[in-house]
Write a protein that binds this DNA or RNA. Structure first.
Length: 508
RNA sequence: GGCCCGUUCGUCUAAGGGCUAGGACACCACCCUUUCACGGUGGUGAUACGGGUUCGAAUCCCGUACGGGCUACCA
């Protein structure tokens, strides 16, 4: 038997990919890389009523942006296709029939109305949501209650039906979760899940087992919300392929929002992204903001996701993808859910911007400035600006505000910050500064600062009282890197121009 | 309601029987900086509760409470 590590991410293409989904991808990816195995993406599109145009494409774009490319998928090819469940439709029915034959599943002819009636009829205070289980199934219309003749007649007539698993009445099913250890269930408390739907498509329960087997998946990872249906999958493995063939399971803790499981609504409500990238619902046209567009670096996004539920046991917090591959281990994934903290997320991004080289920041920042109507004179200037302002940018989008004054004369000057202390002496100083700078042959920050301070000394003024006005003149407000660095980069003409313009404004 | 999972500062977490319960984010103060940041120093702040086991428990066991998930012909 093959021992090769093969893991899969199996999204349902019904909308944008959120935090938790990307983290599941990440942990799959890290595990595969760490063990020299394969990482594949399988599209779980068995519910045709939930088809959403563009969702599949979106998923792959997201993976690309994150740098988590699969080895095999609809887009990447591979020897275990098709990688889309709807294209595997033909392969599921035989397994369901096999189970019926073995007495481990049965045909059920109940209509949606009959099911609804059952739920109403058996609903009590103690049991608000009755399940189709061993206590109920003999009261329903299925091959257990119908005679063999009736059943085959109905089938022959093409009556709509599903195939349900027949959960044993009194067995204990247990398995070892890589994160939680042994988990056990009493089969009597689990309902008879539908395996094959009336349209001939499998439900998740059947498909996940059949496909994991077909694709030789060695380790199956998913969110904790799947834990309650695990006994169904365990039993299916046992019945269909043998328990020794079953992959090892790990159920990841949930990522929580302010009120339980994180939802895209939380994002809108609390003002932080939930999806990896912008997602526009094709039906409603509703836009859900993504981390990418919000100004996150993919490296930071990956980094913060990795630490949401896993840690190495050291005090390190900043990890590159390569480092994560090296250090990741499933044993150190937490079992408790983690509440998403947007403040910390931003901190990760800030750290990544600070430590990123100018070269890697340049394309993104360049585009961003262009999109915001700022003309960058040269790559050289752009690089210098990035170097100068990057440590005060938490999000990539902050570069716009932090550097616009390098490329455009400020539209508004915060004269209110200067005016109250503006006087004849200062006016004289700047007049003299203009004269001095006009004659300057060396236009570098150091020289500019020296000259500035000399003139201040001659006029018996404190440089500190002059630097703020100078900054306001060049930048328009109380922010930005060192003033002389700004002046140096702005060049002589533009610097002098801005001083003069501002001085006129201060006269009024 | 039933089933399952979980519970260390507000948040993410470290400490896999021996501690003044450590770090990070956020917050506060101070220093640096003649802007804003960066950086530095310090501070506030946690083992849900009750029983065991043990010389010793955040750590192991049981119960309670609380939180979360699931309870569809959705994944």
């Amino acid at each position: 038997m093959s021992k090769r590590v093969r893991v899969r991410f199996a999204p349902s293409p019904t909308g944008g990919l959120h935090l938790g989904g990307v983290r599941t991808v990440l942990y799959n990816y890290l595990f595969a890389r760490k063990h020299g195995g394969d990482f594949l993406v399988r599209i779980e599109d068995t519910d045709q009523t939930r088809y959403v145009a563009g969702a599949e494409e979106y998923i792959f774009n997201t993976l690309k942006w994150c740098g988590l490319e699969p080895d095999e998928s609809v887009q990447h090819g591979g020897n275990f296709g098709p990688y889309r469940q709807s294209e595997r439709k033909a392969s599921y029915r035989q397994y369901a029939e096999q189970l019926v034959l073995a007495g481990q599943a049965y045909y059920a002819f109940d209509t949606p109305e009959e099911l609804e009636k059952m739920r109403q009829d058996f609903k009590t205070t103690e049991n608000p949501s009755p399940q189709y289980d061993h206590t109920i199934r003999l009261k329903m219309r299925n091959s257990l209650t119908l005679s063999a003749e009736e059943t085959s007649q109905l089938l022959a007539a093409g009556t709509r039906h599903v195939i349900r698993i027949k959960m044993p009445e009194n067995e204990t099913v247990s398995f070892t979760d890589m994160i939680r250890g042994e988990v056990r269930f009493e089969t009597g408390t689990v309902d008879d899940k539908v395996l094959l739907k009336a349209d001939g498509m499998p439900t998740y329960h059947l498909a996940v087992v059949v496909d994991d087997k077909a694709m030789e998946i060695s380790h199956a990872f998913r969110g904790e919300e799947w834990l309650p249906s695990a006994p169904v999958h365990i039993l299916l493995w046992k019945y269909l392929f043998g328990i020794d063939q079953m992959p090892q399971w790990a159920h990841f803790p949930l990522i929580l929002g302010p009120n339980g499981k994180l939802s895209k609504r939380d994002g809108a409500k609390y003002g932080f992204p939930v999806f990896a990238m912008n997602w526009t619902d094709p039906k409603t046209g509703e836009l859900t903001e993504g981390f990418k567009e919000k100004g996150f670096l993919p490296e930071a996004f990956i980094n913060l996701l990795a630490l949401l539920g896993w840690n190495e046991g050291t005090e390190q917090e900043i990890y590159s993808l390569e480092e994560l591959v090296e250090k990741f281990s499933m044993e150190r994934v937490h079992s408790a859910g983690a509440k998403f903290d947007y403040e910390k997320a931003k901190w990760f991004n800030h750290e990544w911007i600070k430590q990123s080289g100018v070269g890697s920041l340049e394309p993104g920042v360049g585009n961003l400035l262009k999109e915001n109507g700022l003309e960058v004179p040269s790559r050289e200037t752009l690089r210098k600006v990035i170097e100068l302002v990057k440590e005060r940018c938490t999000l990539l989008t902050d570069f716009v505000q932090q550097s616009s004054f390098f490329f455009k004369t400020p539209e508004t000057i915060d004269t209110a910050a200067v005016k109250p202390k503006w006087n004849e002496a200062k006016k004289l100083f700047f007049t003299e500064l203009i004269r001095n700078y006009e004659l300057a042959t060396d236009w570098d920050a150091h020289t500019l600062e020296n000259n500035f301070k000399e003139i201040a000394a001659v006029n018996e003024l404190k440089p500190g009282e002059l630097m703020l006005p100078f900054r306001i003149m060049l930048v328009g407000g109380k922010y930005g890197p060192g003033v002389f660095d700004i002046a140096a980069l702005l060049g002589k003409a533009e610097t002098l121009q801005r001083i003069e313009t501002a001085m006129k404004l201060l006269q009024d």
